[in-house]
Simulated assay, not measured.
Amino acid sequence: MRTLYLDAFSGISGDMFLGAMLDLGLDFEALKTELAKLHVSGYELTSDRLAKSSIYGTSFDVQVAGGKDHGFIEHHHHDDTAEVAHHHDHDHAETEHHHHHHNARHLTEITALIDASALSATVKARSKAIFTEIAKAEATVHNMPLADVHFHEVGALDSIVDIVGCCVALELMQIDTILASPLTDGSGFINVAHGQMPVPVPAVMQMRVGSAIPIQQRLDIHTELITPTGMGLVKTLVHDFGPLPTEANPTKVGYGFGKRDTGGFNALRAVLFEKKN
């Protein structure tokens, strides 16, 4: 029985999760091979092992042609013009994103893309569940039907690779159960294309509704630590929250680095546990 414990003392994002899994021993080439089953192009994966605060870990990134643009486009029936709202996803962009009104992917198109892939049934189901959680939260925040949520092409590609990659990683690492510490987020505001967004960001707050996910805020950190993708992963996949397991033995520790400057050690610590005999 393999248990993964996520120590989210500095929040969580898709990049941080995959960085931590790679640091635990996830085969980078095997990850690439599985993601190729999606039959999408225009991205490159990078993985760098480096030290922060003299602690070694892994920095993972999805590099997308044309740059980062984590947006979804909302189409209101009463308005002939497409109105763009912000679905920022990772730690990548600190300021404005540039949105375009073409090449958007509807949630149903994303789920169809996942269904049409050669990925395992488990990876497909988990990936679709995470995407749906995020889209439902965004739809509520922006007062629009779920059917009207469209992800911009570049942001959708980045999110697809990240979210599916996380689910692939869990399968490749043969994780049976996922546990987590209480999550930590920052405070204040972050700047996006349409102004300021409060931290925790609205989609993350919305995903707390109907859940018992514990989040504590660091009032000394004035930026986002929990991204919508990170929250979607946690809400969909984590079985329980609490301290480190006592009925299992830790076998390996990994660190996945975030990209925001928090003024401190910005990483997700992941610990593998094997059940005691």
Rank of each mutant, 00 (worst) to 15 (best):
K136F: 01
A129H: 11
S117Q: 04
L38G: 00
D80K: 15
T132S: 13
A104R: 14
K52G: 01
A248P: 01
A137L: 10
V209R: 12
T108V: 12
A65W: 01
I134A: 02
L233I: 12
K128G: 08
F189L: 07
H99D: 04
H194I: 06
M197P: 01
A193D: 02
N266P: 05
L24M: 11
T236E: 03
K276W: 06
C167N: 14
R105W: 12
F17M: 09
F131V: 01
L24Y: 02
H100I: 02
G155D: 03
L157D: 00
L272I: 07
V84L: 12
V199Y: 03
T251M: 12
A104V: 07
P200Y: 08
S127D: 05
N266D: 07
A65L: 04
A82C: 06
A85G: 14
I12K: 08
L170P: 00
V161H: 05
I134K: 04
T229G: 04
E94K: 14
K275P: 00
R105G: 01
L183K: 05
G186L: 09
Q174P: 00
L31H: 07
L146F: 03
L113Q: 06
F265G: 00
M144F: 13
A129P: 01
V209M: 14
F9M: 12
H98V: 10
V253T: 14
Y43V: 01
A51D: 04
F60A: 04
G71I: 08
H152K: 15
G67C: 06
R260L: 07
A112V: 00
S117D: 03
H76A: 12
H194C: 03
P245N: 10
D69G: 09
I190P: 01
A267M: 13
E247M: 06
K32E: 12
T251Y: 11
H101Y: 08
P200S: 04
E34T: 05
V62D: 01
A118T: 03
N277R: 15
Q216M: 14
G42L: 04
I190L: 09
D15H: 05
D162G: 07
A156K: 05
A82F: 14
K128R: 10
E34V: 03
S59M: 10
S53L: 11
K235P: 01
H87F: 06
F273R: 06
H150G: 00
H70T: 03
A82Y: 12
Y5E: 05
P228G: 00
E29D: 15
A267F: 13
Q216K: 14
V62F: 05
N277G: 13
M144N: 06
M16L: 11
L31I: 05
V253M: 14
R260C: 02
S159G: 14
T46I: 07
L35M: 08
H100W: 06
S53P: 00
C166A: 14
I114V: 12
